[in-house]
Design a protein around this nucleic acid. Structure first.
Lengths: 198, 198, 198, 198
DNA sequence: CATGAATGAGCTTTCATTCAT
DNA sequence: AATGAATGAAAGCTCATTCAT
């Protein structure tokens, strides 16, 4: 590996830059394909869209779930980070919760196939599931806890259950014109609200 | 006509009896397999579980959806028929609606795989979807309409959307101990309730 | 064979009449199906067209070739019998030969699929082939021989080869508007004619 | 670029060399299998004869007709190219036509199964048929036209019909010792010849 | 490291053929 | 005898995954 590398400058970096660019091509291609053909699309399709060999995908993402996670990691991170920020910005914890859930729903509904993948019980998506939970459930707990503490939400609401339910509601939210998950989620939020103290 | 069922004079009947018994074996086996392996299970698996050849399944149910529908038709019918009855029995339309939705949820949650099948966008399940809609949506409309008329539910609630949402919520309701769709559906119902006239 | 036959009158005959009528239904149905779907049509199709069970076909015609032969036997017989008659009727042996070949071609071209079946090398059609040969080759030999004797046809023409060739030419003669086997067969006949003695 | 074909600098080439060798194995195997089992032989059989997986065949030849065409393309090309050459070489257009038809017959008779495939009305062979027509019919038209112009062949002879007829005559020409299509084709040629001008 | 050819398991579907009724 | 349900071998085709280059 030493030696015949052509340009003397930044040989290692060059590789990395190359590899990173490759990764990005891959992620972009995968994202597109997930939209058009779902997260179960043939590996080959993703590879050819990315202009790389299938082996390259396997190298970078040994498992389909790894790829899916990688594709959505950025948005998941953004969403996770938005939690505390909203809590600080918004007037009330409940308002923050509502807006945060809006972001979460955007994530699931916009990225066609994500919601479906999340609910797929297929073997390989376990880790995708886990990743979502690890990253987002704590945020949900924090927001929900704050809202409960503020007396805006009835105690006893299970964060996991709520998130799972919202995730479920998002299935099909981007393809069926007669079905808008956001309306139902709004109902759900109304449902968890504590009755005015009066 | 009574008694001598085995008599050779009823050759056609004999056939039917046999075939019908076979159908039942098939439906039972399919139901089991749907539970253990999902509604996408290989035909072979169902066939071998039923102890019949694959051809037999194709004869009885040319399409996978035909089989799935057949497996669940009984329960769907029961559920559909319960709608008007509950409307008559219960104290209020809303109470009837709540109980009917309970039956609907039982159907989806109990029969593992049904909810998933319903949301499958796979080609062949279109008719399953259609069947559910044809049979159950009118009932939902009737109940919801009555509740709206009685001033118990806010006008503007879309029956289709509500049913779809409930269907979505049921996904995974039988496998995940931390997730009980019924609680969320109760929230949803609270959400559609009209505020007390006062 | 004596004894428990129900009605005392013509018991055996009754049966036979029934069976014969069945056979005819079968042959008619098979003929139709051969036209529409070729001689390789599923047995089931023929059975259902005839309104009988598949088993019945197997009983009457254990082999597909048996059925094909039965279907066309009548016409083959007619054709075979026409040979000597034409030899007697026509002005010259060559004229008789030409007209007889016309009948043969009609048989093959009219009955869609017959020509194809004849050339099928599929296992089961061997006996069909043999039947055609047994019945028609002698006739061809007789006619050709007479024409040779009369000095109308060059000696050395092989009856088998000629018949096979004509059979071949008939393939596709009923479906392709740009292809009329009769014209080519006329050329063939011209080709075997002996040059005028002059 | 000369010489070191094995050098690692030509990775793409290396692939191609390998794949090309594979293709050849495939074509050879297919040719053999077509002879022994006809062009409808199971893909599996061809694959195993070639010592490759079935997928490999599908990769190279998505359609059965693609494979058949590939198997015979070389000979078809040779035959097509021989047309004009013979026209230039031979003493008369008719002589050229006769020799060219000889080549055509060789092609069909030698490659057992080709003639049959050509007459198969099966769905997938349409393109094979088309290929033959596209490539060879123009040649036939040229030769026949020249012969007509030279007064050697009666006007009115249809090139398509003649070629089809010759193709038909070739069926079975390699298996039946009592049947030699070449003799009949010679008769046909005699039949289309214009009578000597007197 | 990347490539993409090759592999072959796994599924679907069709029918000839058998055989219980 | 007739029926047609049942059987299961055969084929086709698709992809995930491996691995030689």
């Amino acid at each position: 590996m030493a030696g015949v590398e052509q340009s003397p400058q930044t040989p290692a970096r060059a590789k990395r830059a190359d590899a990173r660019r490759n990764q990005q091509k891959l992620l972009d291609a995968a994202a597109e394909v997930f939209v058009s053909s779902g997260v179960d699309a043939p590996i080959r399709e993703i590879a050819s869209r990315a202009g790389v060999g299938m082996g390259t995908i396997y190298r970078h993402f040994p498992t389909r779930a790894d790829l899916v996670i990688a594709v959505f990691r950025h948005q998941v991170e953004e969403c996770a980070e938005a939690g505390p920020r909203l809590l600080a910005e918004e007037d009330s914890p409940f308002a923050a919760l509502r807006r945060w859930i809006g972001l979460f729903v955007d994530l699931l509904v916009t990225k066609h196939g994500l919601a479906e993948a999340l609910h797929s019980e297929a073997e390989g998506f376990a880790s995708l599931h886990a990743y979502f939970l690890d990253r987002l459930l704590p945020v949900a707990e924090q927001l929900l806890g704050a809202a409960v503490d503020a007396g805006e939400v009835r105690p006893g609401t299970q964060p996991y259950e709520l998130m799972r339910g919202i995730g479920n509601l998002c299935v099909g939210g981007d393809t069926d014109p007669r079905y808008d998950p956001r309306r139902l989620i709004e109902l759900l939020l109304r449902g968890i609200q504590a009755p005015p103290a009066a």
